[in-house]
Write a protein that binds this DNA or RNA. Structure first.
Lengths: 341, 341
DNA sequence: ATATTTAAAGCAATCGTTTGCATTAGCAAA
DNA sequence: TTTGCTAATGCAAACGATTGCTTTAAATAT
């Protein structure tokens, strides 16, 4: 088989405990012995067996990432993959590993989470979505499995760890930015207005309009997950005639980008005819033409903070239900312009 | 802490070995005893500790998924996430778990793969990309770690397990389809022509043109990963005047979709002015307007086949270096039309 | 009734680590 | 020299399962 701690011990002429202690750089082993042991380890290519270590330590150094049961929805993709990537990165740094939990049905997902948790395969979980009456959250909470959420919890808000942006204010800021540029008729385009994030941004958008003494017009709110046909129809209604919105708050850069393509098919140009602002300050925002004004949400910190905090929690160093709200920031580029009367 | 096999044994009044054997439904335990033990297990909520089991079995029932070191590239996203989802699904079914291996640099990725493999955290890997002179592949191969690739290997093609489509033929078929509809000036739009998949589709496209006695014009080949500015300029060149291509082979449905938006900004309509065919037969293809003709690559089978084969390999039931080439199929919808002279 | 076979269950070693406690060696103090 | 410390190492018992082998008990054959 592979080389074990015993092989190292034998070759170095010491006990396995000594090897184990030099791995941990324990002060009770003399520097001379340590060096010798380290040399042997390198020589015969030893790597500790994490399973064995996990068995005695009752810890696995791995974090489970919970994806929502797949709904085949379009633009979420970008989000989840970048979350996985970010979590992965932060975990690497902390010498943790990451496992994926997903399922076709909710029951399947729960079952798989239970095996992972109670089977001792992970030390804790990061939940990448938020929904009402979620049995998964219920389970994690009841069983006191360490977990963190990226996003805003529906329940247990004051009893759990989560990392999020202030999406209401972010939405408000986006709308205000356009208002302040003189736009009055401002549309909101969201990927899936059932999602918590989008709802919050929408809420902020509505607040900003109200605060400015404007009426919130449901006709100006579009849900991209409508069937393509319905969506096109609404687009036609909105932009097919002279009285079109001159400002758009798009819930995501990709949506904004798509809008800009769509608008050109109506003969409208950005920012000359329409100003548009997106969220995420993604790579698309910088690279598109014209460059897109976008709200930076520090998504990198979203993942890294979550990982760090969760690790604290799992290692018992931290038992408080911290919530971390990351700041946002408008990155001004070329897609918004003062309205000319 | 949590309930172990000993607790079950004690409560049921049997030895741990008996409990272990009833879990495995061994015939050497009487039905009566088994039922009693099962009752107790349920009663006290026992779940086997996978770490302990892994230690004795020298197996972990988990598959590592290797993502490429992130290049921040756009449209790949869709692909990787759907692969992760698919693998996850197939693994669930087979009672396997999935771990993610990723890294910021190649060294980091390799290191993390080594800890996973030699630390006994995974039984094997699925590699989600293919590149030249890849140290990761080199490592897996030298160390005889079980692995499979989704896509076409650069090296060891005859010594390893991989699952792929015949992308050359697929590309050829796409182009032929347009040729056969009477189109002569056909463009190829790819996400990143350095990728193996895209290169193969491009190759097929070129072959089809040559077979039809047409010259392959480099001006008609576009790489979406060009800087936005350069890309727009090329688009302008291609579609900004009367002599535009009337057929487009797009390396992905999303690309095709974007093209269709872009074309409308040039006042061109699909399929009236331009016919377009995509790859993947994704949800976008069905939902877009007009519905998109696309080549179905059976991506679900791509992941499930890979998982099944890899499991066979890991469990030692299969030692041959199988390669599985999945068929493809043109799904005709509304985005292509016979050219009118 | 005794010997033989077989079915069912238990014993104890094992997987590769970690860690509390015991042991040893080396040296200074008495 | 003997005693007492301390620093450095080793011993062996965990961790929670699995499994080869032994034992027990029951059933069958003689």
């Amino acid at each position: 088989m592979s080389v074990t701690i015993k092989d190292v011990a034998k070759k170095a002429g010491v006990a396995t405990s000594t090897v184990s202690r030099t791995i941990q750089d324990s002060p009770s082993i003399s520097e001379k012995t340590k060096q010798n042991v380290r040399r042997v380890m390198k020589e015969i290519g030893y790597r500790p067996n994490l399973t064995a270590r996990g068995l005695v330590n009752q810890t696995t150094q791995t974090i489970g990432v919970i994806l929502p049961v797949s709904q085949g929805q379009a633009f979420q993709n970008t989000f989840f993959l970048s979350m996985i990537r970010g979590i992965s990165k932060a975990c690497n740094e902390k010498k943790y590993m990451v496992s994926i939990a997903s399922g076709t049905t909710e029951e399947e997902l729960l079952e798989s989470i239970q095996t992972m948790a109670e089977g001792g395969r992970v030390d804790g979980f990061i939940v990448l979505y938020s929904k009402k009456d979620d049995p998964i959250i219920e389970y994690l909470h009841q069983e006191k499995v360490p977990y963190a959420m990226i996003g805003k919890p529906y329940k247990y808000e004051n009893e759990m760890l989560y990392v999020d942006n202030d999406n209401i204010t972010a939405g408000k800021d986006a709308a205000n930015y356009l208002l302040q540029l003189g736009h009055q008729k401002i549309a909101f385009i969201g990927e899936d207005t059932k999602q918590m994030v989008i709802r919050e941004r929408l809420k902020g958008y509505a607040q900003a309009l109200e605060d400015a003494g404007l009426q919130v017009d449901q006709e100006l709110i579009l849900d991209v997950t409508l069937s393509e046909a319905a969506y096109r129809k609404k687009m036609q209604q909105l932009f097919g005639n002279g009285d079109f919105p001159t400002g758009i708050v798009a819930s995501d850069d990709l949506i904004a980008l798509n809008m800009s393509y769509l608008l050109s098919s109506f003969g409208l140009k950005i920012p000359t005819d329409v100003s548009i602002i997106g969220f995420n300050n993604s790579i698309f925002a910088e690279k598109s033409q014209p460059e897109l004004t976008s709200i930076d949400l520090h998504t990198d910190s979203l993942t890294s903070q979550t990982v760090y905090q969760l690790i604290e929690l799992m290692e018992g160093k931290q038992t408080l239900a911290v919530k971390i709200i990351l700041p946002h920031q408008i990155i001004e580029r070329q897609s918004c312009k003062r309205k000319v009367e």
